[in-house]
Design a protein around this nucleic acid. Structure first.
Lengths: 322, 322
DNA sequence: TTGAAAGCGGTACCAC
DNA sequence: GTGGTACCGCTTTCAA
């Protein structure tokens, strides 16, 4: 592998000068700069980022922490982040925690040992506070970590209220919230929004508490088999909504005739499945973009918004009438 | 940040000895080792991997290259890889290429400049050959790159044949293959398997060529609106199958009564959607595991299988009868 | 404008 | 078994 020393020798200059050419420093004559850059080009010299990071105590790596990659919502956010970061010449180290505290512990040591430029934590949990000790810029998506960590999210509370409001408009009398696992703050907020609005709209209501333990399907089936008077559902995410619709079909409940259902996220598959899912649409790409923008400002110690809450919209498809 | 020098001073030994303790070298007395490790623990010293990588010309980072994170199949593979690699104390740098040659070019430079331990390329395209010049261990998943790159995959050809065979058993007379974009080799193999078997089983057949350009839905709808005599579908992946089922529902075609459909992948949502999708099940987790196993053997210059093809199974759910 | 040299934080060789 | 030290490849300060 060709290195700076070699380039320096070929160009008949010192390594310092090569470095200056490479980093667009001012204190170098245009002529030598050109000469060096040409040689770099010719020999396809690629600077060693590891060496650079060692000296600079900082790499161009951004850590992205996700709880899992199964719920399509998470990979979609990750995709938005990668797209945005790639343009800024940053790279992504992916940490898939599975909400496992032990894995998170290891991650923290890894991150500390690698001088990362920053960290984006998606759907943080109670353990995420530990990442703060790392003393690098952190941005969280969909979950509050601390006042010092900017928090980019959509308005789950309003989204949930909106969903219930729409169910009411769809002539629902008794609604149920299929809640996400309570390890996620977003689940709480949707839960609260749901309860609040159901009371405001004088609806009868109930909640199914899923746990991501593989038994959610049985839980849901049992519930709806028992409670045949439910005519409106607000699912905490689109994948749960798909599952509910499947269950309805199996127990002979028709959507939207017998029961109206609204999901949350608007992930890629919401418009693909049958029937197309009415949902609360989260601006996923913007979420990712904003997280990157804020993080990069932090790394440059520029002023940045402390937090950012995106509004959500109701997207009518075929699982509701209005 | 505390470093080796500090630990050495505290322990009253040289840095060399601290390094020996840290790396479980043999030439150190158990007593000093214990002493040093205790101090390391106490001061929560975390070695700087960047410095280590610089000297060793190799990091504990594995690059994972994916074409996108929208098709749920890809994130599921990535998740399998992360899980496996995390156990081996390797970290993942994620490259999302969007099949964009420019991005791939940048990736190559990045990878070269970081001394990665290896590379796993998922669904490589014609540009992927360039990664080989990097001269680091590479494993590909679902796509042949060259004879020197071990290739872990499932048997797309047999899977496609199996799907057609099942359609035949399901009394289909005229079948169609909803093909994946031809940038993927897997698409070709399924295509060939489909044609081959359709001929063998003396079925009438046709192919819909999707392109991931946002117009696939229209393409599919138009096709099935025109060709009402189709009674069997083999979709190149589960997401495409979901889309077909949606279209069928809209144009009043019933599954499986009027038309039987088989997907490919068995991604997480295949059992969640309505109706649950009959599909050719790929052992996604094993695919990821095997890729990691092979790659790590290569990094250690151990003997490894040149390639690995997993068999696939037909998984009957509700979009077929038999 | 340029070069020499001292780091960055580890690792491993060589001597004792 | 242990310590001294050169070195990994790049950046930056200081002097020329």
């Amino acid at each position: 592998m060709i290195k700076m020393k070699d380039i320096a020798k070929i160009a008949n200059v010192s390594e310092a000068t090569v470095s200056r050419a490479l980093n667009n420093k001012a204190d170098i004559s245009p002529k030598t700069r050109e000469k060096i850059l040409k040689i770099i080009e010719e020999y396809d010299y690629i600077p060693n980022t590891v060496a650079r990071s060692l000296y600079k105590h900082s790499s161009n790596i951004v850590g992205v922490v996700v709880p899992d990659l199964i719920n399509p919502y998470f990979p979609e956010i990750v995709q938005a982040i990668t797209t945005e970061l790639a343009q800024k010449e940053f790279n992504i180290m992916l940490f898939n925690t599975q909400n496992n505290p032990k894995i998170e512990e290891t991650n923290i040591r890894t991150i500390a040992s690698m001088h990362m430029a920053g960290l984006i934590i998606i759907a943080p949990n109670i353990h995420s506070l530990k990442y703060e000790h790392l003393n690098i810029p952190i941005v969280s998506i969909d979950g509050y970590i601390s006042d010092r960590v900017p928090h980019i999210t959509s308005n789950f509370y309003q989204g949930a209220k909106l969903a219930v409001h729409i169910l009411k408009k769809n002539h629902c009398k008794k609604v149920v919230h299929v809640s996400g696992p309570l390890i996620y703050q977003s689940s709480y907020e949707r839960y609260n929004g749901f309860i609040e609005q159901a009371k405001e709209e004088s609806l009868e209501f109930d909640v199914i508490q899923t746990k991501l333990d593989g038994k959610d399907e049985i839980l849901i089936r049992d519930f709806f088999t028992k409670h045949t008077d439910i005519d409106g559902v607000f699912a905490a995410n689109d994948s749960l909504a798909f599952l509910c619709i499947r269950v309805f079909s199996e127990i002979g409940v028709q959507v939207p005739k017998d029961i109206r259902i609204i999901g949350y996220d608007n992930n890629f598959l919401a418009k693909v499945v049958n029937p197309p899912l009415s949902t609360i649409a989260v601006p996923i790409v913007n979420l990712g973009k904003q997280a990157v923008t804020t993080l990069l400002k932090m790394t440059k110690r520029e002023k940045h918004e402390p937090s950012y809450v995106f509004n959500v919209d109701y997207l009518k498809r075929k699982t509701t009438w209005d």
